[in-house]
């Protein structure tokens, strides 16, 4: 459904997208993951025909983004990372306006808008001004707007931005439903964990180049040894680290030197005058809080089991989370030459 051929975009001296060649099959959910500045938004804007490529081309449903922009726009529904609203319009007016902009006949609009608002669970808000919608609702409305001309392809830039966990679950379900309607969906995020259970295929983008791409399960398996789980806890350090190392899926566990720990060590050697709570902020508690990093190769059920295991063995876990910046660490590990051939999916 989508094929990019050596697609390149250069802004001044910066190459935002660098000879990118990917293929996205019809009916797949293709996630593009990369840190900020990787070129995700530039790629999406080019696919939506909002930005002309410097060189190369992309075909959407066989139509070139360079030569057949109008045809591509009929095929594509685009939800940018910052999806704007018109505060003076009601939800239904907003939808009707964009339906008209996409050439949907006036006679079809009312029913279509009703269906789309039901799909995104906003039908009860249809006559309310848009300024009264929450960010999550606006995001859902943006998705409905992107679907207003029944496009074959959906481009969702930073689709999960600003959504709370519940809204993310709803979005996931919505995307599955859209996939069942044979829509091809391309979405981006800078957090791998947000996409990996939504997408059928994932590509990791850095500095405008695809580092790795393929089926989601394959990519997950490839990246899994690199995932880092940070655990903050009270209690015996050695015992906690040793217990963590025996957990399923754990490759290694290491204590992370924290500010509190460093102060305690200094205090023990008589180097600090402020280690006994002169700061009045419960330094004793701060000293007791430890953090370890677990290099983890398991899946989500393994992670759940590891948490249970730590708590069963007396480790007082305060927080247990995959590090948000683990993608950068993954990228550091993967940061070899980009794949020479096109990344095929679907």
């Amino acid at each position: 459904m989508i094929e990019t051929r050596e697609l390149t975009k250069i802004f001044g001296k910066t190459t935002a997208v660098d000879r990118l060649s990917i293929q996205v099959g019809a009916g797949s959910i293709f996630g593009i993951v990369g840190p900020n500045g990787a070129g995700k938004t530039t790629l999406m804007r080019m696919l939506a025909t909002l930005l002309p490529p410097t060189s190369g081309d992309a075909l959407v449903g066989g139509a070139s983004i360079r030569r057949h922009a109008a045809r591509v726009r009929r095929l594509v529904g685009y939800l940018p990372d910052a999806s704007g609203v018109y505060p003076d319009m009601t939800v239904a007016e907003y939808m009707s306006f964009f339906a008209a902009c996409y050439g949907v006949p006036a006679s079809d609009r009312a029913a279509l808008i009703g269906d789309l608002l039901t799909l995104v669970d906003l039908s009860h808000r249809r006559d309310e001004p848009m300024e009264k919608l929450s960010p999550g609702m606006r995001r859902r409305l943006g998705l409905a707007r992107a679907l207003v001309h029944d496009p074959h392809v959906l481009l969702l830039d930073d689709a999960t931005a600003g959504l709370d966990p519940r809204a993310r679950v709803e979005l996931r379900e919505l995307l599955k439903e859209l996939r069942s309607m044979n829509k091809t969906i391309v979405l981006t995020s800078h957090i791998l964990a947000e996409l990996e259970d939504m997408c059928t295929h994932i590509a990791i983008l850095e500095r405008g180049r695809i580092l790795v791409a393929g089926e989601s399960a394959v990519i997950r398996a490839r990246l899994r040894p690199h995932r880092i789980i940070a655990v903050r806890f009270f209690g015996n350090v050695e015992m906690a680290v040793n217990q963590a190392r025996t957990g399923q899926g754990v490759v290694d566990a290491q204590l992370v030197p924290t500010h509190g720990q460093a102060m305690r060590e200094e205090s023990a050697t008589g180097m600090s005058e402020f280690a006994n709570g002169e700061d009045g902020m419960g330094t004793g508690m701060l000293h007791a809080l430890k953090e370890m990093q677990i290099v983890f190769a398991g899946d989500y059920s393994d992670a759940t089991e590891l948490l249970r295991h730590l708590m069963r063995t007396g480790v007082q876990v305060v927080s247990f989370s995959e590090q948000a910046d683990s993608l950068e660490k993954i990228l550091t590990g993967l940061n070899g030459p980009a794949q020479p051939g096109p990344a095929r999916t679907g």
Binding site: L50, R73, R74, Y78, P80, S83, G84, V85, Y86, C101
Partner: peptide
Amino acid sequence: GERERHTLDLLKATLL
């Protein structure tokens, strides 16, 4: 104003 409201891209992505 459309640019500030982030609605210009939405308009440009339509058939207008």
